[in-house]
């Protein structure tokens, strides 16, 4: 079939790879070069003290150079590397143009015209330089948040998985645990703060407990729902093949419930971020949530904005990672919705 030139041509045109469009690549380069030139050469406003124009200009210049290099590789999309580069440009050129325009407008609105009244709305360079100047505290805050979140996710996730499995398998466990899950689960974790911070000897473990509790609820409910939704015939077939209950739990129920379990993690992450931030703000004197409030207290707006930006990247990356793992693990699922 593929030897028929008509068919082959039709197939190529119908399933054409979305490769780089030279016009959008040119627009992309133009925007980033324009941003570099404007930020570096147009004089700043005299109304305010402006920091960090040079690092931003260097950064935008480097982005322009990097994009140009990718384009050089992608220009002849014959080899696998060229094709990959070309597809990447074809996919993301739109976002690179938008990002270049945004950074240019932002700098003009702040550093060049003073319209945004720095430091309330600081120019991009000021975020960078002030975050860099405070890199030790900011870095340790990121580390603290990551540690707290990781512990909460692991403990709460494992507990939720175990509770959900247990409820799904033992009628007695369901009898005792179900009402507890129904009444404790929906309570906003924050409401426990007064009790928890007194009950725990130190605030760090109190916060870990709160994050775990937040994660535990959706994980329990969705694991349990997943286990109950496993087609009964899977057990029938495996039992006639001689499967033990251990096999039925870990090799049949658990994989069959994985789609639900991943939804549980997906739902647990954002609420875990909420609990984390609030716990850090109210009790634990470290972490990104605390850093943001601390900087606000000192009116150090650029550092505060930088920390918020770090938070966006932090949460977004984790969620993207969760979805990527899910798409990989659930590749067997028919009609899997890929986010």
């Amino acid at each position: 079939m593929a030897s028929d030139p008509l068919v082959r041509e039709g197939l190529t045109s119908r399933y054409r790879q979305r490769t780089a469009d030279p016009r959008s690549v040119a627009a992309c380069l133009a925007v980033w070069i324009a941003a570099t030139v404007v930020i570096a050469l147009v004089p700043d406003t005299d109304a305010f003290i402006v920091h960090g124009q040079l690092p931003v200009a260097v950064f935008t210049g480097l982005v322009a150079v990097a994009l140009a290099l990718v384009w050089l590789v992608a220009r002849r999309p014959t080899g696998s590397r060229g094709l990959a580069a070309s597809r990447w440009l074809g996919q993301w050129a739109g976002w690179w143009i938008a990002a270049g325009v945004a950074i240019l407008l932002w700098d003009v609105a702040t550093a060049k015209t003073g319209w945004g009244r720095p430091p309330y709305v600081p120019p991009p360079g000021q975020l960078l330089t002030e975050a860099w100047a405070d890199k030790e505290l900011l870095g340790s805050s990121i580390g603290h948040s990551a540690e707290l979140l990781a512990l909460g996710l692991v403990i709460g996730g494992a507990a939720g998985l175990a509770t959900g499995l247990w409820m799904g398998w033992s009628r007695r466990a369901g009898y005792w645990i179900n009402p507890i899950v129904k009444y404790i689960g929906p309570v906003p974790t924050i409401a426990w703060i007064p009790i928890v911070f007194i009950a725990f000897p130190d605030t760090f473990w109190a916060a870990v407990f709160l994050v775990s509790l937040t994660v535990w609820f959706p994980m329990t409910v969705l694991t349990n729902a997943g286990i109950r939704a496993v087609p009964k015939e899977y057990f029938d077939v495996c039992q006639t093949l001689g499967a033990s209950s251990r096999f039925l739990i870990f090799k049949v129920s658990l994989p069959a419930a994985l789609p639900n379990i991943f939804t549980g993690v997906f739902m647990a992450l954002p609420t875990a971020f909420v609990t984390l931030t609030i716990a850090e703000t109210l009790g634990v004197n470290s972490g990104l949530g605390w850093y943001i409030n601390w900087k606000k207290g000192w009116s150090a707006y650029p550092a505060m904005y930088a920390a918020i930006a770090v938070m966006v990247v932090f949460c977004g990356t984790l969620l993207t990672l969760e979805l990527a793992i899910r798409n990989h693990v659930l590749a067997w699922q028919k009609d899997l919705t890929r986010w």
Partner: peptide, 26 residues
């Protein structure tokens, strides 16, 4: 239930996360 008595349903009830070889080798 016992492996000496095999069972085939109207639906194939293959475990969807296992390949054909793994399903047959269950």
């Amino acid at each position: 239930p016992d492996p000496s008595r095999g069972l085939v349903f109207q639906d194939p009830t293959l475990l969807p996360w296992l390949t054909v070889a793994k399903n047959v080798g269950l």
